[in-house]
Design a protein around this nucleic acid. Structure first.
Length: 383
DNA sequence: TCTGGGGTCCTAGGACCC
DNA sequence: TCTGGGGTCCTAGGACCC
């Protein structure tokens, strides 16, 4: 038996729990501080009742409800809460995993009273953090996750042999985790509309039409296997990146380069925070004419120096041979991450490292961007 | 449809090695 | 350039998730 625990409107609920003034009001959490040029990261249930949902752009949300409360997302707050919840759930002594920042799964083996256990968990989360959670209970992870959505918010749903097929028959295929827009279109073209339609198909059918993803879905629906527990500390990211969308497309090379430098420095600072370095740098661009395109390059030497990462992205950009250098959005991402453990060999490298460490300490103590490469200031002035 | 920003995993072709 | 076969790594793009 797997319990899937999913926080209700997580970011918005945390903001309401912290600030009583926001309690009971329609509220959205936006990814950027500019409240008219961002999208909804999370909407409180009072906002959802008006038809506002995450993913919607904020301008539209405000046109539905001009009195909407707005808060800028603060990831560190949500990560902290998430870790606290994780620690609290560990006390139950079952195998436990992070599914995402606001979802956890727990293997409760053959616990005699899963519903009572789920209720106890929900109450503890509520009394400690003043936010609500929904819990799904089923024979495997995929079904438990589906179940957690059935009685949202603030509810419990259990799926077992007695009700599995009727529940699946009522759930559209795209409710299933792993089925997005494209797969949904494909499945519907094959005449499959409900999760039950999919559930009754053979593994051969799934592989033929969906490849490996199909086999994974089949296994997810039918297996009763548990999951591997991954301790929080082992949770090393596979990539670290930052991106930015301009208010309008720009073809000013100085401006674009300044932004690439800024994003490179931001990525590098996060690598250093985690004592990581990267040997593969990727640059992603969006232009109105060409849409999304990206390129990446692997380098023999790993680094977490923002300037080096910046120079690498410039090399990548030079190779892209941009016909239309009008850029709407761009992103820098580092992959092939490894622990930074070798001290520099050369004196110049040692001095460079000392400099970077000194800058990191200043920015840590006096706030982000207290000192930064001068060229970055161009990213604010020019368009 | 895009709107923003943070990620993961998969695929298919190419380069390269023995 | 193709001849044969096996394997790894790299790369660009797509799908999906929160």
């Amino acid at each position: 038996m797997i319990l899937h625990i999913d926080m209700d409107a997580f970011f918005a609920s945390i903001e309401q729990a912290i600030n009583p003034r926001l309690k009971g009001k329609p509220l959205i959490v936006g990814s950027r501080p500019d409240k008219m040029h961002t999208v909804v990261c999370a909407a409180s249930y009072q906002a959802k009742a008006l038809g506002i949902c995450s993913g919607m752009n904020s301008r539209e949300a405000f046109s539905i409800c001009p009195q909407l409360q707005f808060v800028t997302a603060d990831q560190s707050k949500y990560i902290w809460t998430s870790e606290q919840i994780h620690d609290m759930l560990k006390i139950y002594g079952f195998r436990l995993n992070y599914a995402s920042i606001d979802e956890f799964r727990m293997d409760i083996l053959n616990h005699p009273q899963p519903t009572a256990l789920a209720e106890d968990i929900r109450q503890r989360i509520h009394s400690r953090f003043n936010i609500t959670a929904s819990v799904g209970i089923a024979g495997n992870c995929l079904l438990a996750k589906l179940a957690s959505k059935l009685n949202k918010p603030n509810g419990i749903a259990i799926m077992d042999d007695s009700n599995l097929e009727p529940i699946l028959a009522r759930a559209p295929v795209d409710k299933l985790c792993g089925i997005g827009k494209s797969t949904n279109i494909l499945l519907r073209s094959l005449g499959l509309e409900t999760c039950l339609d999919l559930y009754l198909k053979s593994p051969q059918f799934m592989q033929r039409h969906l490849g490996k993803a199909g086999l994974n879905l089949y296994a997810g629906l039918h297996s009763s296997e548990s999951f591997q527990e991954e301790p929080l500390e082992d949770n090393q990211p596979k990539s670290i990146g930052h991106s930015y969308t301009f208010p309008r497309a720009s073809k000013n090379p100085g401006f674009i380069k300044a932004w690439i430098r800024l994003l490179s420095e931001m990525v590098a600072a996060r690598l250093r925070q985690k004592s990581l370095e990267s040997s593969c740098v990727a640059l992603w661009l969006n232009s109105p004419e060409k849409g999304n395109f990206s390129a990446q390059k692997t380098f023999s030497r790993a680094t977490n120096d923002g300037y080096e990462i910046y120079l690498k992205t410039l090399k990548i950009m030079a190779k892209m041979s941009l016909q239309t250098p009008k850029i709407r959005a761009l992103g820098v991402s580092c992959q092939s991450l490894s622990k930074a453990e070798y001290p520099p060999l050369l004196i110049e490298e040692k001095r460079r490292e000392d400099l970077i460490q000194a800058l990191d300490r200043i920015n840590e103590r006096f706030g982000e961007h207290t000192v930064f490469p001068a060229v970055i200031s161009l990213s604010r002035k020019m368009q």
